[in-house]
Design a protein around this nucleic acid. Structure first.
Lengths: 162, 162
DNA sequence: CGATCCGCGTTCCTTTCGGGAACCCACGCC
DNA sequence: GGCGTGGGTTCCCGAAAGGAACGCGGATCG
């Protein structure tokens, strides 16, 4: 199975993973959220090869996650900024950071803290139910088939021998 | 730069990405959250080669994200289940699903819906501030240096020419 | 009691992709 | 006009992914 096919699966996670599910892309986005915007800065910051960086940025621009806009002309220079679509990946990145802080922490505490400006507190954002407002845990969520389901997908499939 | 080095960076996202930041691993975890537990089921469901699946599962077990426990003896058969550490990756996966639903949806609506059992509503879990309880958006969060910061990392670094 | 199947891998081979470093080029500057 | 700089592209090589076959213990069937 090729990745081009996986991207077309009836699974939002798979579709998302086909866009951002690689290590460099995740790190590029992390830096984008930290307001890194230029090719050289991404490159020196991540240590990624220019070659790969060029490819990843292009991909992200094609996907509408970053824009490539000139910040000066003569010589033409560009910067890469998150689009609205890109900014909405923030929960994914923050969740990864929170998990990393909780489990990969090496005993030194988190390298970065997050301040929620509206309330001024330093916090770890958490998942909550927009309806009842309570924190959400994995075991409290039941996945149900939705309108966009096409393939026999995942749940309750055990080959033909039913 | 090798991935073994990136994993040691002073960045929780990088450390997390070094563990789950690859497409197959993400999909394996997605299936694990959908209560897929056996080698054969992961394999037929994902279309991943047995070879790669074996490697990914091993990695996840080594990282303490899955456990490999016998569900019968004679013949010995094992199943892979999320540990507590693994279950806490749920926000990452749910956020990816939510993003995929919002942007990659192909006009058919989401393939899966999520019901929050405590309140009974079908919802898209969102990120909120555990302190003030309000939904959190990227532009409202300011990253600050934390106690575990070691390298000159990311923010405000522009090579030596300051 | 041999033949077959099932669950769970492992081996082998080929193709693709990432790492590292050099090269390119338009411009701006002294 | 030689040098620096931002933003890439090219080249080669070793590492990883894809595909498919093979192995193997135990159960099951006839």
């Amino acid at each position: 199975m090729k990745w081009s096919e996986v991207g077309s699966l009836s699974c939002s996670v798979a579709r998302t993973a086909s866009v951002i599910g690689d290590r460099w892309t995740i790190l590029i986005l992390r830096n984008a959220f930290l307001r890194i915007r230029r090719f050289e800065d991404f490159q020196s910051n991540l240590g990624i090869t220019r070659h790969l960086l060029a490819g990843r940025l292009k991909r992200l621009v094609d996907e509408g996650i970053l824009t490539r806009t000139p910040y000066q002309e003569s010589p033409p220079r560009y910067e890469y900024r998150l689009t609205s679509k890109g900014r909405q990946l923030y929960p994914v990145l923050i969740s990864m950071a929170a998990w990393g802080d909780a489990f990969m922490d090496e005993g030194k505490g988190p390298p970065v803290l997050y301040r929620h400006e509206p309330c001024g507190h330093t916090v770890t954002p958490q998942l909550s139910c927009p309806d009842c407002g309570k924190a959400v845990h994995a075991h409290e969520i039941t996945p149900l088939p939705g309108p966009g389901l096409v393939l026999a997908d995942a749940v309750g499939r055990r080959k033909k021998r039913a």
